[in-house]
Every structure is written in structure tokens, then in C-alpha cells.
Design a binder for these strands. Structure first.
Lengths: 201, 201
DNA sequence: CCAAAAGTGTTTATGATACACCCATGT
DNA sequence: ACATGGGTGTATCATAAACACTTTTGG
């Protein structure tokens, strides 16, 4: 999700949403505030990524950026540009425009982190609707891991972890058998994690 | 490794080494410089940990700390306090004094990161001498993982990864059979990593 | 009735675990 | 000679991988 900058420097250029931390504001609060102001996105999974502080990374002078990444579920949230952003839009990661500042480097770190962490933390579920089908989950992991997975093995592995609950509902309106919808069980995951369980895909 | 602070705030109190970033200095350079100035330690594995920026964490006003952690090999490096530090000393993690600022929280994050990352990245070798015995390596992992490991299984697993090279030398002066000394093969690790290999203990 | 994806078990291979003795060296 | 850790192999168990057909639904 990129925004087109309304102000100098890099006015009119695509960039990651962001801005300055308030004098009495926590870092994460600032990240959530800026994201909400520029895109309207709220209530997301958000985690600190890395801090970028090369001396010449901002033409205005010395600026240190504490980067955060957010994961947005696929429920079809719309984005609305406002504040300093004149436009906000989703892009595919393999079709990005040129970015302001060192934002291409920040994005590269974020992707690397996501690809690594998704294997040992249940981040994937943050990217799906609250209720999802097993095929949707499998496709997600196939995209992130960059290889095909066996349907039966994937289902067995996921189901034996005991982290999915069957909602009893099915997804309707498809030209084939209606698939069951599942939810991720956050409570159960927290319990398992405490007792030494490690999520692994 | 803690230093006793020579200046206010928290003068005389134990703290993590650190200080302010120069106006034209990269973050990692500042971390290395401060560590060298206050303890004399140089040429270490160093990695960004997390950025701490709660509004009230420093009584002087708003201070954001980009924390780094370093791993020091067991070659018996001595530490020498200087600069703002009046004393520099090693402490066991289960016998720490009270720390200045929120440094106890920073340390907790560092330990958690180390315990987690040591399992999927070859960090352990940074904590040993350049040449080490298999028993030393095993003890290290036993301490970090908090459980005993089987000698034969551990050796087989480590050796089949192909990341250790036999130096041909042995450690002398012990009251028993002289153990072989190994080196970690960084080049080979970099190769394997590129071809999709994941280190795992 | 056709197309399209959902759903389901068994066999094989691979890697993890458990386990006990002889060897080399210094005192 | 003895005490101390160094060094080695095999059998069993658990988990991962390979593999194909029937079922349900909408058009």
C-alpha cells in the first residue's frame, strides 16, 4: 500500500505512508496514527521492522526512520488518501513504481522479514479474511514460500496443529462444491506457545 | 557486559553501554563506537535489536534508543572502562544488578532474541573461540536451549551439516584425551544459505 | 452432464531419538 | 592404575513426502 506524496521532498512520488513522531507519542502509536491519517486503515497487526538511519537518507537533514509493517486482511478494505497523501493505492510487489527516499530498501527488508517469519509465526492468518477456506490458506503459503504444496499433506499438517476451528459455514456462490470456512484460534495458539509449541510450515 | 555510569542521570548505576549518535554517523557505526569507547571491545558480531521510544524512558526528555546487541567470543577478551564509564564488567544474566533507564527491558528483549535466533542462525559460533571442541559447542547449545543433548546425536547432526572444518589441531593441557579443534566455515554457510539451506538445532 | 474445486488414506522415505562401551591422555 | 572426558554405531520411532480418486455444486 503506497501513498503519493503531497509535499516536498519527493512531492508527487510514491512512498510508504509515514511521518514524524509526536514529542510525547510512543513509536507504535505514531505508526498507527500516520497509517490511519494517510490511508484510513486501522486495527491491523503491526510490528516494528527495523530502524533506518543512514546520514544522507533524507534531503531535509538527518532523519531516522523507525519502520513498522502492518498486515492487512483480505476482507476488501478500501483505502482513502487524506492528510499529506494525495492518493493511496495497492500495488503488487512485483510491479512497484519508483519510491521516495530509501523506501525501496525498507520494503525489501519488510518482504524478507515476512517471508522468513511467516514460517515460524502464524502471520499468514492476518492476511486472510477472518473466516477462510483451507485452499485459500494453502494458496497463501504457496505464494509466500514460492513453491507448490501437496493438498492432503498441507491439510493434515494444519489440522493436526489444532489451531483452526470449523465455523460450520461454507463459502457460497461458487461454481463448484462449497468449501468449509475456518477461523484461526488465537487463544489456543497463545496456550500452545506458552507450553513450548513452535508453529512451523 | 555492563558499565557503571560516570554521569547523571543514573550516575554510579549499572547500564548497557551506549550514547548519542553523531549528526553524520550511521546508527551501527555509533553503536560500535560507543561500545569501543566505553569497554574497549571491537570487531564483534553486531546486529540491530529493537528501537525503544516510550516518551518517559529518559528523565532528560524525549530520547529514542536504537538498541544493538553484540556477541563476544570466549577467547578471554578483557574489558577496559573509559569515556563516560567508570567501570566495565561481565555479569551472569541470572545475577544482574539494577539497571539504569529501561535497560532491563532492553536486556530482556535481547535475551529473547538470542534464545530464539540461535536455533535458526549460526550465532552460537560467535560466542566460542575461533577454534573449539565439539563438547564446547554442545555445552553452549545446552545452556541456551536449557536442556541436555545426546552427545552422539549432536555430533552427527552438526557434522552432517558440513559447516565445521577440522583444524587438525587438538586442545592440549587437559587431564584426559586431547579433543579435536574445529572452525566454523563461514564461506560454506553463505553458500548453503543461498541454496535454500536452513540451519536448525 | 460437464466443469471445477472440495475433500479424503495409505505407503514409503527420511530424519530424530534412545542407548553403552572403548580410547587416549595426564596425574 | 585410575580418573576424566573423547570418541564412535545401530535399532526404533515419529514425522514428512509422494501419490489419485470420489464428491458436491453451479452452470
Amino acid at each position: 500500500m503506497l501513498v503519493r506524496r503531497g509535499r516536498e521532498p519527493f512531492a508527487g512520488c510514491w512512498a510508504l505512508p509515514g511521518g514524524f513522531v509526536g514529542l510525547d507519542e510512543a513509536l507504535e502509536d505514531a505508526a498507527r496514527r500516520e497509517l490511519a491519517e494517510e490511508t484510513g486503515l486501522t486495527d491491523l497487526f503491526l510490528e516494528q521492522l527495523f530502524t533506518f538511519g543512514a546520514p544522507e537518507r533524507d534531503p531535509r537533514g538527518r532523519v531516522v526512520s523507525v519502520a513498522y509493517y502492518a498486515l492487512v486482511d483480505a476482507d476488501g478494505r478500501s483505502v482513502n488518501a487524506s492528510s499529506d497523501a494525495i492518493e493511496a493505492k495497492w500495488f503488487p510487489v512485483d510491479g512497484l513504481p519508483e519510491l521516495a527516499f530509501d523506501h525501496d530498501a525498507i520494503l525489501a527488508v519488510a518482504l524478507e522479514r515476512l517471508r522468513g517469519k511467516v514460517r515460524y509465526a502464524p502471520l499468514g492468518f492476518e492476511l486472510l479474511s477472518r473466516a477462510f477456506t483451507l485452499t485459500e490458506l494453502q494458496r497463501l503459503y504457496e505464494v509466500i514460500l514460492g513453491r507448490d504444496l501437496d493438498k492432503r499433506n498441507f491439510r493434515r499438517k494444519i489440522q493436526t496443529m489444532g489451531l483452526l476451528v470449523d465455523t460450520g459455514k461454507t463459502r457460497q456462490g461458487l461454481a463448484h462444491r462449497a468449501p468449509r470456512l475456518y477461523r484461526f484460534d488465537r487463544r489456543r495458539y497463545a496456550e500452545l506457545e506458552r507450553s513450548g509449541f513452535t508453529f512451523w510450515v
